[in-house]
Design a binder for these strands. Structure first.
Lengths: 343, 343
DNA sequence: TTGAAAGCGCTAACAC
DNA sequence: GTGTTAGCGCTTTCAA
């Protein structure tokens, strides 16, 4: 291991001078010293020992992106953005998949033990306990959902706009009988997504019957049951809006299994985007949310908090939100319906 | 922050005694001391400062699982196993998505700067440079492919067995005209997968024409071209074996687009498994490889290397390997072929 | 412009 | 069985 001391010896300067130069600030050091020290460091292949630095400065220079699972299609996008920002800010970014049980402590310990300076919590389920525990331990946390009591400690997507767009898009295709499959029916976030969806539809003169509203999950584990219920409906909807891409994909699969063709007999739209949406038959039309931007902003905000620039106002990421048109939706008039809905 | 010193004060013992007790070894300490110290630590909510400990012991107590991307369906499985082992061994496990360019140094610096003790490289593409650089820097690395010059520093899957099983399965369904779409045609690993596939087929009396062999990638980006070529073949194969689930999925999609029904007109089989394989129509039959075990063994091996128990012999994970039967394959006799192949 | 020195929290060798 | 002490590599204040 090459230490500051070794570089100092090689360059002929004191260790403290070397330290100053290698930190690259605007310190008052002669050009010659700067040059010789830089050269010596490069020759020796010096790398600062971050444990020693961290012990001294009480900063780890790292942040953690905590996930409940690695296979949700939204996470790669968040990670991509977070990584960009982390690189720019000189932070190390670790992805940490926390275990379902004891999630809170495993994650918080990363900071309490000095491995990281803060946490970005990308949990899909509301976890107020975590935020409370973090606050008590004074662990800086940015959530990617609105679980925080302090809205400036969250970076949320504008799901109201996202679901409004989803609704507008379906209405624009001519649909009037639309089912909605949400996620986490118990959470207020999901409730407001549903409200926004319905409200947007209402504005366009489309009313949605309560019996057309279903609960689900991001993973779409109950897709089969939901499809059964939808197909039992007295008046079958011509479109199904879902709150996750996976749910959309799995609903399409369940419909196919039962001989219902998408999009000809029923349309399905997802929420959030991923390359995988292209690989199924039919490919999945979906509302793409700016998850990359969200990841980026989360890291920037955490950085600001860590440096106590707490001036940042609460932020909602609302651009770009767009419908990615693929095969699972089409104009109502182009569908192959047994009989047109009667109103 | 609660320090050892604070616990010592509270318990009425010296800091060094506290240190010994809290490390939990078989140190000679009175039962009373042990009890009072443990109690004080709990009351105060003491967490060891890992930077201080690491500085002193020259160990980070953490290992890194380096990925090129987060969205390959194989990675969640590897991570799951790695995480189990890490938890058991008391190591922190970080997932680190390294940038395409400068991958080597970004990852190696994690160790050279003392953030982690070793690296598990889950790269899908051969990267000999990395292993060479790591060796030069004396950074412990376990690769999940056979790039290492030292076979004891890799934990590889028994792909020979996997592809043999794939071949056996297709032959068992009655197929004799089988196309093979590999990955990374340039690497020796892929070559031997192909050889194993062909050899296994040969043993069952099935010869595979060189024109039925195609190159590809894990991501299946050239699925469209491959399908075009396959459909142009004078004698169309009745089955397509692929070396990745994603490639298999995308090939099915491209076939559907062109009006070719899977499995009735052609069978497709993937390699590696994931929940996603269930969600498409048709669902994808695939060879499931023991990636969870691989992840677990990789961490265990790295741990052994870090503690210089270098006695471990080279290891190939070969259980369990099994075919997960889904809808993309069926008996040749049950297919709906325009005319049976003429031999 | 440069150097001396203290100390971050912890471990481990050693003395008592 | 318990305490003393040196020092891991670094930053930073202060003095020269």
């Amino acid at each position: 291991m090459v230490r500051l001391k070794d570089v100092a010896y090689q360059a002929g300067y004191d260790i403290s001078t070397v330290s100053k130069v290698l930190q690259g600030g605007n310190i008052h050091v002669s050009a010659e010293a700067r040059e010789r020290i830089t050269k010596a460091a490069a020759e020796l292949g010096y790398r600062p020992n971050l444990m020693a630095r961290g012990l001294r400065t009480r900063k780890a220079g790292a942040v953690v992106l905590g996930f409940p699972c690695l296979d949700h299609p939204m996470y790669p996008a968040i990670t991509e953005g977070a990584e960009q920002a982390a690189t720019e800010l000189g932070l190390a970014l670790f992805a940490y998949k926390f275990p379902p049980e004891g999630a809170a402590n495993a994650l918080l310990d990363l900071v309490r033990q000095g491995r990281a300076d803060g946490i970005i919590l990308a949990s899909e389920v509301p976890d107020c306990d975590f935020v409370k525990l973090a606050t008590e331990s004074r662990v800086p946390v940015i959530t990617l959902n609105e679980y925080s009591t302090d809205p400036t400690l969250s970076v949320v997507l504008d799901d109201a706009a996202g679901f409004a767009l989803q609704a507008t898009y379906l209405a624009g295709l001519g649909h009037t009988r639309i089912a909605y499959v949400g996620v986490h029916p118990e959470s207020t976030g999901s409730r407001s997504c549903e409200e926004s969806f319905k409200e947007s539809l209402r504005k366009q003169g489309v009313l949605i019957d309560p019996s057309y509203i279903f609960g689900g999950s991001f993973g779409g584990d109950n897709a089969s049951e939901v499809v059964d219920q939808i197909l039992k409906l007295e008046q079958r909807p011509t479109a199904i809006a879902t709150a996750s891409l996976t749910m959309g994909t799995r609903i399409i699969r369940e419909l196919s299994t039962r001989g219902v063709d998408v999009p000809n007999q029923i349309n399905v739209i997802g929420y959030h985007d991923s390359k995988q949406a292209e690989w199924t038959t039919p490919s999945v039309t979906t509302v793409r949310m700016p998850s990359v931007v969200q990841g980026r902003c989360a890291v920037e905000r955490l950085f600001a908090v860590l440096n106590s620039q707490k001036s940042l106002a609460a932020e909602v990421i609302s651009e770009p939100i767009e419908v990615i048109e693929r095969e699972s939706c089409c104009l109502l008039s182009e569908m192959n319906l047994p009989h047109l809905p009667n109103d």
